[in-house]
């Protein structure tokens, strides 16, 4: 479906997100969230831009209950940037100028 953004689940959360050697941007979404789906191509562009330097993944909050609950997701899209196992920044809703905004979030961790 996507070349640069992989879908993650609760089962692989620790390995893929918390233990990643690179910063990880997680896009929490659901199929019924139209704005989330419309945002996906922009997130994909950022993922392509930072491939090899940062990881970009998405998590379906319908299929995965544990991680969204743990991080208190109560609205989507929510984008959280993790670095070295810790949450460093989050954005709720459609970030204006997401191309620039998400790139800057990642740059701050590199």
């Amino acid at each position: 479906m996507s070349d640069f953004v992989t879908e993650v689940s609760d089962n692989v959360w620790d390995a893929e997100v918390l233990q990643s050697e690179h910063p990880v941007l997680v896009d929490f979404w659901a199929p019924w969230c139209g704005p989330c789906r419309m945002l996906a191509p922009t997130v994909e562009q950022v993922a392509e831009q930072y491939q090899g330097k940062a990881k970009v993944v998405k998590m379906n909050v319908d299929d995965n209950l544990e991680s969204p609950a743990k991080y208190g997701i109560r609205g989507i899209p929510t984008l959280i940037l993790f670095n070295k196992g810790q949450e460093v920044e989050r954005r709720v809703g459609i970030p204006p100028n997401a191309n620039v905004e998400l790139a800057q979030m990642i740059e701050r961790q590199l």
């Binding site: 019924w32 969230c33 139209g34 704005p35 109560r74 609205g75 989507i76 809703g93």
Partner: peptide, 8 residues
């Protein structure tokens, strides 16, 4: 956004 967040 009701469609985004109602289900929570």
């Amino acid at each position: 956004c009701g469609t985004c967040d109602g289900a929570f």
